[in-house]
Design a protein around this nucleic acid. Structure first.
Lengths: 224, 224
DNA sequence: CGGAATTGTAAAATTCTTGTAAACAACTCT
DNA sequence: AGAGTTGTTTACAAGAATTTTACAATTCCG
């Protein structure tokens, strides 16, 4: 579950937002002023920060600045009242990612939150490569020589397990437990069958595997 | 030209506003009570709605609520008389975007209208397209080959979820949680049923889907 | 080298998953 | 209340994936 830190001195608004967040599956964290908000931002490491622009002690602007000064990349949305004068450009320059003008609909705020979370999370696309194969873990796509390769669920799961445990011998039982789980008890030969198919699909020469090696009497070993 | 729907039981005020709107280059649409106003809001799909708070039959509050319940994001400004008691937070919570207290100058109202239109158009007018389909997120309108397509609420919600998460496998559980929310627990097969309908309505060839793909053993993937 | 154990592999057998229509339930609007 | 929508569940056929099986090929080690 993702944590959203709400920093606002208006307790009514704070609670409204918190309620909405909870209802939508987020974990809200609340702070009534900039100072404590900043402290929570640094210790709690929330997934997103909502911060009011006008606050006593430490303004939203200051909070943004300091969060960024701490090398945190947490996405931040600034809330500003309709009368507030504020410079969008400056706001974004110091590190805010978006701003919403009060009064706003909760629906809009939520949309912004979701959009921002998606934007900042999708930036970390993990792509692992070995031989002539590329594996995109976020998109669950496997490419061989740039060509889209179709893997079944079991094949894909087995592949990711190998990727996570490179260069070490893995017994069939270990593989079964990790990939198939403790609930199902297939024959250990099942593993072999799937390894064969992975080799056929991913190896340049399936008859002389260079990545999915067998360790005779033990199991298999993956070599990137 | 942008259409502004004015819902107010005071005919004098209605006409004044209509006149002003016309002069300023908007197309006014008028409704004398909440019920007919709501109907017009849903059928006419105006660019902005001005709605009086106190009205016979259906209050402005109710109108706001129902417009939002229909998943329309049309910006709404609530007009309230100076004596009216009203809860700002509640108002905004149910979906209003701004409010103006009567008596107000036409100049002020116009400024609010412009500001709101600017805000919601510059940041929310998103038309996403894929294949021969266009989706206008602000108006909640879906076109296929330029023709208006009728999607039910669930269908539309599912579609927007897909649009927001392109090119990545989405499990039925993820879809249920995001589109249906945590409160309802429909069968996961419900997702399939709706995907089928989306394919039937949106795919050029529903039997060979090119956008709503199934990822066997995992779920679905939307490809723009 | 020879034989037992282990592994590779295709194909059969089985189990799962999905598409789809139709029944059913819930909700809206009149 | 009832007609019409919309949403959900169910049932079953079709298809895909997984597991098992059988046998060939390979490896190991005395």
């Amino acid at each position: 579950m993702q944590t959203v830190l709400v920093i606002d001195d208006d307790s009514a608004l704070r609670d409204t937002i918190a309620l909405m967040l909870e209802k939508e599956g987020f974990r809200p964290a609340l702070a009534a002023d900039g100072k404590s908000g900043l402290k929570q931002a640094l210790t709690l490491k929330p997934d997103l920060i909502l911060v009011d622009l006008k606050m006593p002690v430490l303004s939203g602007m200051e909070v943004c600045k300091q969060v960024r000064a701490a090398e945190m990349k947490t996405p931040m949305i600034v809330l500003s009242a309709i009368g507030d004068e504020f410079d969008k450009v400056l706001l974004l320059e110091i590190g805010a990612d978006d701003y919403v003008v009060k009064p706003f609909g909760t629906r809009e705020l939520l949309a912004r939150i979701r959009a921002l979370l998606r934007r900042s999370s999708s930036e970390e696309t993990k792509v692992v490569a070995f031989g002539e194969v590329e594996v995109d873990l976020t998109r669950r796509v496997v490419l061989k020589k740039g060509e889209d390769l179709k893997l079944t669920r079991a094949e894909y799961n087995l592949l990711t397990y190998f990727l996570q445990n490179p260069d070490r011998p893995l017994t069939r039982d270990m593989i079964l437990n990790s990939v198939w789980g403790y609930e199902s008890f297939p024959n250990t030969r099942t593993v072999d069958a799937h390894v064969v198919r992975l080799r056929q699909k991913l190896e340049a020469d399936p008859n002389a595997p260079r990545h999915f090696l067998t360790v005779h009497g033990v199991g298999y070993r993956f070599l990137p």
